[in-house]
Amino acid sequence: MEINKVHSDLKEIYKAKDVEEKFNFKFEYQNEKEILIECLKQGFWSIMPFGFEGDNILAFQLTPYKKIYIETPIISFNNTYQECFMLAPNIQALIPMANLVFMDEVFFIKQFQERIEETITLSQSFFDYFGGGDLEFFKEFLLSQSNQERFENPDEYKEDFYKEFWSHYYDTAENTKAFELFDKLIQRLTYLPEYEDVDQDYGLWNNYIGNVLAKRAYSRIKIEDKYKWKHYWRCAQLPHGFDCDNKSFEKYTIRLGNSSSLLDSLSPSFDSRWEEQYAIFPEEVKKHPLFEATEAIRKVGGYSGDLHIKAAVILEKEYNDPIGCWNALISASYWAGRQGNLDLVEMCWGLAIDLSRTHGWTEIHNILSEQMEFYYHYKDKI
């Protein structure tokens, strides 16, 4: 039994073909079922795995109201951090983005240049399977005469390459706004924008930016919390376990971090026992079900997500907020997974299946159900 049909199909298409050397990822992995089951036990049922990047799992990030093979980002579940990080804006960008990781060294760039035609040939079945795409931009980027001087010192230009790839493969107003903000954050490491100036849609960057700004706010110890709480509150509402950089933001490239560390730092700001701190939040925020859940992260020893489950139910039934419910279930499952509480992980998963059925998220419903069969088949065997 395979975890899903896409992974099964890709394994069959590329059976006995050495794709890792060209793609910098592959579709089969030694002990892959053990790795996949462990990922699911950690609470990450909201992703759709299909490949492996080293020891890490490549997957679609399931997103309500988004077409999976066109609009959803590709994430890498990091086997060390046990968190997910966005690698590419869509499946069509994955091969170039996976190669981009190594484009800070002359040796690898020369390899990519020498192999580009073979890579294009090998990739055709991949793009055909997902309904289109090509490597023309990647080829032109590698062979363009104007880039050869930069390739002599690629480490110096790695961040420029990153921005250029994202600007091509995610050519949207949201991406432009995101990189404009990144530039400001990099230019002044003490810069914390007014919340109202960044309270906008950054598309695929929403999770990352929410986490980055919350971390930047937390690190500015000389700024009063009344100027920071909105950044904290936005972060608290995000799906935990995704795109968390809890270090100092100094580069475009997403750096690895832990949601648990960041939220553990922010949680005391939501502690109702601290009257002066508590008074900063408006009543509608304090009454929001995620406020109590965020407070519990630090307050409750060994927090395992139960209050996020409670919040998810309230958000669906009373707030009529299915996206908020979905995000809360992902967060609940993240905290349950960290504590090894499989009962709560499975409860969240089941509620997500019900939620997707209720709101007609057919693709998501089918994937969650299919992957749950895989999970229960191997759960106690591995």
Rank of each mutant, 00 (worst) to 15 (best):
I37Q: 10
I37F: 06
E38H: 03
C39Y: 02
C39K: 11
L40T: 00
L40E: 03
K41R: 12
Q42T: 04
G43Q: 00
F44P: 09
W45Q: 01
W45T: 05
I47H: 00
M48P: 00
P49M: 04
F50H: 03
D55A: 07
D55W: 00
L58V: 04
L58H: 01
A59S: 13
F60L: 09
L62E: 04
Y65D: 15
K66L: 10
K67R: 06
K67S: 11
I68Q: 10
Y69F: 12
Y69P: 05
Y69R: 06
Y69D: 05
Y69Q: 09
I70D: 13
T72F: 02
T72M: 14
I75Q: 07
S76N: 11
S76T: 07
F77P: 11
F77W: 15
F77E: 12
T80W: 06
C84T: 03
C84W: 01
F85A: 09
M86A: 15
L87T: 14
A88Q: 12
P89Q: 10
P89E: 00
P89V: 04
N90E: 08
I91C: 12
Q92D: 02
L94C: 07
L94S: 03
I95H: 08
P96S: 04
N99I: 07
L100C: 14
L100K: 11
L100D: 13
